[in-house]
């Protein structure tokens, strides 16, 4: 492109000076002009022109979050069935079957080929007998029933525990139970969360949610234990959905009844199962002493999660009809009806 020439009459004969040809000069100018024009287009072209990067008002570059919304996973109960089924038996799988039969059978609620999310309470790194986590026997029985009886295509089991997720799932016995039954455990890594939009919710209208296991599910079933809870009285089916929240969720204890009733808006489950196998009667929700735990030998299943909790509070935790305030708030938000009277069918 350029070649060194020695100009005549230069003072230092050893020096050379770069000279440029006309052609090379023209090419260089044209190249620079092209680059300049392209850059100017990107920077200054009106915002609706293709490839324009202009943001004259600053509005275009404002951060925007894509919000997910959870579906409504409820299924109407069969005609003549009760809202609530209670099964009583020493054998966990049998009492679950009895309770499900009382509300019309599992096959009515889950169709063959569907993807089902089961949400147990695996919040703590505790042995199952301490009652701080869901009973692995009932999780196993449910996953097996979903896969075998209802012929679901896939059963996912997920929770976002307070302690190390892998350890909580392992030591609560849930991971092994799910594996035996043929389901799949979803652990929350930092990539598994998404912002969720819940219209009508007071505290979590927009909040981070453990979303990966919820992607493309057809049905959602909660499986919670019955636990004493120091702040809100009792932790049962509604409080269980807390385990899907991400972010700094511990702020919500400043208004615990509001958040639990908000959770009933966020998640409209197909079924709410609350198991009274190991009832944590005091020192909750963590427990830690087997003497805090009472064997209930009963399980409640229902299409109305509010009524399920109310029934368990009264009959399993045995605390009378002075229900926790969040149940009435959930009723006000349209998530169900508190009073279980006349809506329960018990099979012993």
């Amino acid at each position: 492109m350029t070649d060194p020439v020695r100009p005549a009459g230069d003072q230092a004969p050893g020096r050379t000076r770069e000279a440029i040809t006309r052609r090379a000069f023209a090419k260089r100018v044209a190249g620079l002009a092209g680059l300049g024009a392209a850059a100017s287009y990107l920077a200054f072209a009106p915002e609706d022109w293709p490839l324009s990067m202009a943001d004259a008002t600053g509005l275009r570059s404002q951060p925007s979050v894509e919000l997910k919304r959870l579906g409504d996973y409820r299924v109407p109960k069969p005609d003549g069935a009760f809202d609530l089924g209670v099964g009583r038996d020493v054998d966990t799988a049998l009492r679950l079957r009895k309770a499900l039969d009382a509300i019309g059978g599992l096959a009515h609620y889950v169709q063959p080929g569907e993807i089902v999310l089961v949400k147990p309470n695996v919040a703590f790194d505790r042995s199952p007998i301490l009652g701080a986590t869901s009973n692995p026997e009932i999780v196993e029985a449910l996953v097996r029933a979903l896969l075998v009886d209802a012929r679901a295509a896939e059963v996912r089991v997920a929770d976002n525990p307070i302690e190390s997720p892998a350890d909580c799932f392992a030591k609560s016995g849930i991971a092994a139970a799910v594996e035996r039954a043929g389901g799949r455990v979803y652990l929350p890594d930092s990539n598994a969360f998404h912002e969720l939009y819940t219209p009508g919710a007071v505290l979590i209208e927009q909040w981070s949610c453990f979303y990966r296991p919820l992607r493309s599910v057809d049905k959602v079933i909660g499986v919670a234990p019955v636990k004493d809870h120091n702040l809100c009285g009792a932790s049962m089916g509604l409080k269980n959905w807390y385990g899907l929240l991400g972010g700094r969720r511990n702020q919500f204890h400043q208004d615990i009844h509001e958040i639990v009733s908000d959770l009933s808006l966020m998640m409209r489950p197909t079924l709410s199962i609350v198991d009274g196998g190991h009832i944590l009667t005091r020192n909750g929700p963590t427990g830690g002493d087997p003497s805090d735990v009472r064997e209930g030998q009963a399980v409640a299943v229902g299409v109305d999660p509010v009524a399920v909790d109310a029934w368990c509070y009264e009959n399993l935790l045995e605390r009378g009809r002075d229900y926790p305030r969040y149940l009435f708030m959930a009723e006000d938000k349209g998530s169900g009806r508190v009073d279980p009277a006349g809506r329960v069918k018990e099979i012993a």
């Binding site: 120091n230 702040l231 204890h253 400043q254 020192n283 963590t286 427990g287 830690g288 002493d289």
Partner: peptide, 22 residues
Amino acid sequence: CLPHAMEIPCVVCEEVCPTSPK
């Protein structure tokens, strides 16, 4: 501390305390 200094209910600490008794 929210309940001690600001009249706001909280006690997450009591809830999660894993010893028995707490």
